[in-house]
Design a binder for these strands. Structure first.
Length: 655
DNA sequence: ATGATTTTACTTTTT
DNA sequence: GTAAAATCAT
């Protein structure tokens, strides 16, 4: 058997067609459970088997997890096809690719080589300062939304100078944007948006540099194309305009990140951009029962302007979708726990079950019921590892070592652990600008003897840490920081419980484990470590292999599948969420989210709603979600559990 | 500068 | 209802 034959083995006709396409542009619309990753990985392996050099290939994904999985599967495919190739294609997230370009060409756009990356919380802190310092009304320019508007301008590739404000609000926004951006460069940092938009601007201004990348990446493949934003789209198109070999795969019906600037038009208008593009539809579903698939399709049919597709499956009909009306969120949760108990006795493990909800806040009632029943569970999302306070503190120290002008990091650690340096003093130091360690030292030569001493000791501490950078590994530096700052003692004195301090220390140890990878990296170790933690936010070791049910938002569930899926809180106002009910576009996105949630289920799907629900402390009557009405009755089995069980330990359920 | 108290706000979030 | 942020005493 030839190499290519081996790679094509086991693919269905459509998959094979996608994998073996000739050069040129192609769009593969891949329904849920239709083998999207399979098509993508086999395509890459096929190209290599057809003697394309691996280094000529660029594959772009949205998550590190996806990039890792593709890498893994491609090398496995190549190995089992008996192909010995040296090197693998360039595979990574949009942001990782952008970062690579910036590291090489930082000089050309004046950000140098040693910039660091601001994460979302840091951006938040910075924008607050900018809003305050410009005398903007905090009510009209709340940090989150303001940052959102700036991010949007960046994805639209509008630079501060090119932004033409209309009206007073935008006048101020323009000022804030300009100021925000100039502070970024003053600190020598970039935000996430810059990782994509700066390379695009670079390529537009420097065709010579673009040319080099076009030559280098002759085959470009993009995963989850429906989620690309305008700048990502432009980046891909600029690169692909070289050889014209562009392979995009995705599903317009699963576009659920428009609130994060994903632009569904990128996939819908693919043919306009690439008139000769081949379009292939993967419509066979290997995941769900006929019933589940039919329910999902019935819902999504209420949207307009999707790629027409007709999903089908050879899987059995399966059971009806069970629709449960609960009295309130607690009875809803208890009902699910009872159901989990039954399933557990049957042929399912808890790890086969996922409980999906629209908002994180909904997890609590569910958790309480699970804890009460002594049933193990794990929650995906919520507070992530790199967002934890202790981790951020240590990282801020490290970033300050790498980049002494990073004032966001400086502000974070200046008084952590508490050393009597308040906001007033910090802003004095910051206003001196430049190297903040140096600025601290200079600020320490004035003022009262008392504050002098404090500042000098902070300056000494930071200087000592920075010197440690030259002869210590990242791991050594973290240990050094913890030791020299008295961080351990600080954690213990915090008004937290003891176990909490222990848990926080455990997180610091976990950070050491991550850092170990860079032990042998030499002088670049720190920079590379900081890049990894900036770009890999979900470092939560997916140690969820134990027998536990999984709880997560519907967004977090995208790309996953479970034999048994529960969707809770199917009520108007919650899902679709009240904030989205009026704009048709957002309504359609909610519906796609429902489609995504439903199609996670392989064998059994349970959906539920509550007649009464506590939201922010007050009680609200709930109506079943319109999405339930959109599922044909023939596919549903409705039930209303006996409410007596609900009341027995629930005496204060009255008005 | 810091600890206590009140006010406020609150969808989703691959990087 | 909660948790973070703003405000108020010390």
């Amino acid at each position: 058997m030839s190499h290519t034959e081996s790679i094509l083995e086991g693919l269905n006709e459509k998959q094979r067609e996608a994998v073996t396409l000739d050069s040129g542009a192609a769009l593969v619309i891949s329904g849920p459970g239709s083998g999207k990753t399979r098509a993508l990985t086999h395509r890459i392996a096929y190209l290599i088997a057809s003697s394309v050099r691996p280094s000529d290939i660029l594959a772009v994904t949205f998550t590190n997890k996806a990039a890792g999985e593709i890498k893994e599967r491609v090398s496995h495919l190549l190995r089992s096809a008996g192909l010995a190739v040296k090197g693998l294609p360039t595979m990574g997230t949009f942001h990782a690719i952008g970062l690579r370009v910036l590291r090489v060409h930082g000089q050309e756009i004046g950000i140098g080589k040693n910039f660091s990356i601001l994460d979302s919380a840091d951006q938040q802190a910075l924008i607050k300062r900018v809003v305050a310092d410009n005398g903007a009304d905090i009510q009209r320019f709340k940090p989150g939304p303001t940052l959102g508007k700036i991010a949007k301008l960046k994805t639209e590739l509008v630079l501060p100078d090119a932004f033409v404000p209309k009206g007073g609000y935008e006048e101020m926004l323009a000022r804030l944007y300009r100021d925000y951006q100039s502070r970024l460069s003053a600190m020598n940092v970039v935000d996430f948006g810059d990782l994509i938009s700066l390379p695009v601007h670079l390529f537009r201004n420097r065709p010579d540099i673009l040319r080099g990348y076009q030559e280098r990446w002759q085959h470009i493949l993009v995963d989850e194309y429906q989620d690309t934003s305008h700048d990502q789209y432009t980046l891909v198109n600029l690169l692909a305009k070289g050889r014209g070999n562009l392979f995009c795969i995705g599903d317009d019906a699963q576009s659920i990140y428009q609130f994060r600037q994903a632009d569904i038009r990128n996939i819908l208008n693919f043919q306009r951009d690439w008139p000769d593009a081949k379009i292939i539809l993967l419509e066979q579903n290997y995941r769900s029962t006929k019933t589940i698939l039919a329910a999902a399709q019935a819902v999504i049919a209420h949207n307009t302007g999707q790629f027409p597709k007709d999903l089908w499956t050879e899987n059995p009909d399966g059971d009806a979708v069970v629709v449960t009306e609960a009295f309130n969120e607690r009875t809803e949760a208890r009902d699910i726990v009872r159901r989990l108990e039954e399933l557990k006795g049957d042929r399912y493990a808890l790890s086969d079950c996922a409980i999906l909800y629209r908002t994180h806040a909904q997890s609590r009632a569910m958790e309480e019921a699970l804890v009460q029943a002594g049933m193990p569970y794990r929650i995906v999302g919520g507070l992530r590892f790199y967002e934890r306070r202790e981790v951020k503190d240590i990282l801020a120290y490290l970033r300050l070592m790498q980049n002494p002008t990073d004032l966001v990091s400086f502000e974070r650690v200046a008084n952590v652990p508490k050393r009597g340096i308040g906001p007033a003093t910090v802003s004095t130091i910051v206003s001196l600008g430049g190297d903040l360690i140096e600025a601290t030292r200079r600020a320490g030569s004035g003022g009262t003897p008392r504050s002098q001493a404090k500042l000098q000791s902070l300056a000494d501490l930071l200087r000592g840490l920075r010197e440690a950078r030259t002869d210590k590994s990242v791991r050594g530096m973290i240990a050094h920081i913890v030791a020299r700052t008295g961080y351990r003692e600080y954690l213990k004195t915090m008004k937290d419980t003891m176990e909490n301090a222990e848990e926080r220390l455990e997180n610091v140890r976990e950070l050491l484990t991550v850092a170990r990878k860079y032990d042998d990296a030499g002088p670049d170790g720190l920079q590379r470590f900081l890049e990894e933690v900036a770009l890999v936010q979900d470092a939560d070791t997916l140690a969820g292999t134990e027998r536990a049910a999984t709880l997560m938002t519907m967004h977090a569930a995208k790309g996953l599948e479970y034999p048994v899926v529960f969707i809770i809180g199917m009520e108007e106002g919650l899902f679709p969420h009240s904030r989205t009910t009026y704009a048709p576009q957002e309504m359609e996105e909610e519906r796609r989210l429902c489609y995504v949630a439903v199609t996670r289920a392989k064998e059994h799907l349970y959906v539920s709603y509550a007649k009464w629900r506590n939201i922010y402390g007050s009680r609200h009557a709930g109506l079943p979600s319109r999405f339930l009405d959109e599922m044909p009755d023939a596919l549903l089995a409705r039930r209303v559990p006996d409410e007596e069980a609900a009341f027995e330990d629930d005496t204060i359920t009255y008005e």
